[in-house]
């Protein structure tokens, strides 16, 4: 599929505003691990990035070509595409601090 959105950092509404996060989560079908990963990432996004993130959940069984593009070796893998630099987190996403670091979310103190 060619539905992968391009980064739109130059669009007028984003100039001067904090950049939206673009996150890509790779999973395998309807397995328990996939379900946990989606719920965990969505929960953290809603808590820390509400309204300023785009999440793509990619089932590599149904969209294998996208997994090849991002060189996925195991699932789940979370990739922070934007803001740069790209970061990837492979495997268990239950460690909140690790995931927040991967998402490039800084705690407000």
């Amino acid at each position: 599929m060619s539905g992968k959105p391009k980064a739109s950092a130059e669009s007028p509404e984003t100039i001067g505003a904090p950049q939206r996060h673009l996150l890509r989560l790779y999973v395998t079908g309807a397995t328990a691990g996939s379900t946990r990963a989606i719920q965990q990432v969505r929960r953290l996004c809603e808590e820390h990035l509400a309204g300023s993130y785009d999440l793509e959940v990619i089932d590599i069984y149904q969209l294998p070509s996208l997994a090849k593009d991002d060189q996925i070796i195991a699932t789940p893998t979370l990739i922070k595409v934007l803001p740069a630099p790209l970061r990837r987190l492979i495997g268990d996403l239950s460690n909140v601090d690790k995931v927040l670091f991967g998402m490039d979310v800084r705690e407000q103190s």
Binding site: I58, D59, L63
Partner: peptide
Amino acid sequence: APLERVMG
């Protein structure tokens, strides 16, 4: 819609 935008 693209599948990856519907899932999640």
